[in-house]
């Protein structure tokens, strides 16, 4: 069997707040294989974001090991870590984190600026393609403050994808979105997972969102409480058809 994309063993993270030590992760062991779509759930404060930051090489663990594509991340230099963040991992935040007063195109081009010499023409072509793939082909020059939350989140997804990562990490990407927009975002994730075989780890509070994944891992108090395959997987395409039909029906009723 091929090497897992993610392999963590007894991962711990303890924050020091003044004198007090806050154990956020108390030993997580987990493997994620290529092509998996994993949803991470758990109550607030259970360590989901902490875990995602460690997976995204944005933070370093207190203990335990993390192999990314079989490479031990703890041996990486700061430079290597920047490279991993740039090329191998795409990160989508709950709060979008787009550059304000900067167009969608430029936001999506940003990771390519740090990826060695990519000619401007190629950068633009790739950013455009990424934005089109998330359905924003008509909003290339819009600034974040001219877009809805769902559109901003899609720009952030395009930015996460533009360097063709092997792993997409999304921390509550639908946390700030209404249910319909959430389903649209999940549609994008499902398509990426299905069509490109992209490995995805997604954090969510909501059971319905989690059921779009192939596997659900539940955290509690910094530990894995449950880990199971999704028996009845939701399909965003079907749901969207349903929502649209509902909207048409409503329109007919009120007409």
């Amino acid at each position: 069997m091929s090497t897992p994309v993610i392999s963590v063993a007894d991962l711990t993270k303890t924050y020091a707040v003044g004198e007090v030590e806050v154990p956020a992760l108390r030993g997580v062991t987990l493997e994620v294989r290529a092509g998996e779509f994993l949803a991470l759930t758990g109550p607030s404060g259970s360590g989901k974001s902490t875990f995602m930051h460690l997976l995204g090489c944005l933070d370093t663990p207190t203990g335990g090991g993390y192999l990314l594509n079989g490479d031990d991340v703890s041996t990486f230099s700061k430079r290597d870590l920047a490279r991993v963040r740039n090329r191998d991992i795409g990160f989508v935040f709950q709060g979008f984190n787009l550059l304000s007063r900067t167009s969608a195109m430029e936001n999506v081009e940003l990771p390519m600026l740090y990826a060695g010499r990519i000619p401007a023409a190629e950068r633009r072509a790739r950013a455009k393609a990424a934005l089109e793939s998330v359905g924003l082909g008509a909003r290339l020059d819009h600034h974040p403050n001219q877009m809805s939350g769902g559109q901003q989140q899609r720009v952030a997804i395009a930015r996460a994808l533009v360097n063709n990562p092997v792993l997409l990490l999304a921390d509550e990407p639908t946390g700030n979105l209404d249910s319909r927009t959430s389903v649209e975002v999940m549609d994008i994730f499902q398509r990426l997972n299905r069509e490109r075989g992209l490995t995805i780890v997604l954090v969510t509070h909501e059971q319905e969102i989690a059921e779009h994944a192939t596997r659900i891992v539940a955290f509690r108090d910094g530990r894995v409480r449950a880990d199971q395959q999704v028996a009845y997987r939701r399909d965003a395409v079907v749901e969207l058809e349903h929502v649209n039909a509902q909207a048409d029906a409503d329109a007919l009723m009120t007409a």
Binding site: L58, K78, R79, A82, R85, F91, L110, Y114, A115, R159
Partner: peptide, 16 residues
Amino acid sequence: TREIGLRLSVGARDLD
């Protein structure tokens, strides 16, 4: 600061 954090998270090195 947040902009810097974002740049670092998409792969900027501290030198950048």
